[in-house]
Design a protein around this nucleic acid. Sequence first.
DNA 1: CAGTTACCACCTAGGTGCTAATTT
DNA 2: AAATTAGCACCTAGGTGGTAACTG
Lengths: 215, 215
Amino acid sequence: MFPSVRVKVRNLDPCQQYYVAMDVMPVDSKRYRYVYHSSQWMVAGNTDHSCISPRLYVHPDSPCAGETWMRQVISFDRVKLTNNEMDDKGHIILQSMHKYKPRVHIIRQDPRLDLSQIQSLPSEGVHSFCFPETEFTTVTAYQNQQITKLKIDRNPFAKGFRDPGRNRYGSRTCPQNTRQRDPRGSAGLTTETGHQIKCLRVAGQSRAEFHTSQN
Amino acid sequence: MFPSVRVKVRNLDPCQQYYVAMDVMPVDSKRYRYVYHSSQWMVAGNTDHSCISPRLYVHPDSPCAGETWMRQVISFDRVKLTNNEMDDKGHIILQSMHKYKPRVHIIRQDPRLDLSQIQSLPSEGVHSFCFPETEFTTVTAYQNQQITKLKIDRNPFAKGFRDPGRNRYGSRTCPQNTRQRDPRGSAGLTTETGHQIKCLRVAGQSRAEFHTSQN
DNA sequence: CAGTTACCACCTAGGTGCTAATTT
DNA sequence: AAATTAGCACCTAGGTGGTAACTG
């Protein structure tokens, strides 16, 4: 997921241990389509999200003392998204052409519970936070060229698509080779789905901040 | 460090949380040199290790329930060694031309202590294990061609040095370019020191096993 | 037709031993 | 003379968007 969600935390107990986690919630129950000539997302149908419990991404530094969490910017740059409902790699499962918003959870460690393999949120000791500016729309192919440009400009892994002066990208190098495609389902491995960020701030440009009182 | 140390654990409390860690201890206080014509390591001087407290490598899966530790082979394939005494990357610091043996520690989690950033071993709740066959001698340049061959054959990252049929390795591709070397200390970044394994079993070929009674 | 996927060239990031240059 | 280091070509591993092929 790029740009990645980055947060700062305040007012934790410095000596208390916390887990920090992220999940992604549906914004509504609508399916969208992009209308090119008006550059707008329009409602295109309904979806029932109610039967799906979202997957939880636990920050790899967890568990960690409040002091340490507060001293650093907490970056979720390893979060992976997929549209494969059968995913077995622990990625966050989303449906394409829908709107979502990330949630960040600060979870106080409970010595009575084994949280080392937490799959879902505990019922107490959790504070959750949303940031409206991080809402985004999922796609399998980019609809909006400004998003494509933002990603290519900002993501180090997309460096190969910058610098149109050396125009060797964008057209296939070996167009004479007709590629053969595997029969559907032959391998069955998950392909990472592209995703489109609507308003999420670019990592390094600005940082979401929030405060939590004690907890 | 390759080959990497790999262990199995038994008789842990399935519900108890444990840290697993490794450090590397001097075998003796001798400096060695390799006598090529007799293919032997000979004592070449004395060293005082007593003032150095060895660095601890905490396995990245820590902390974790005993049940989980026992279910898997615990591999220390991310351990990094250096001969730079000023190292600030947390690597294990060793002296070249000395003999060492890895130690594996099973550390029962103590709720009273914050072990999330452990730098040294607690005074209690620790069981430590050595395996004679993992003893090795440190070098900055390989002395023994059998070791070089073992590493090239077994380490995926050394694949470029296999297959002498395509003999494009081993001799410089551009010998006409006389390389300029930076003045000493200009950058100062740590270089990973090569290291020579004497008897350590090859990962995947055999596995060290040990048992611990309760704890 | 719109949406999705497989495959690709192109990157980042970093782990190998080899060799020449340098240090001790 | 012996030990160490920097830079190198060559790998593994995996993150990018573009494109053609495929799906429904």
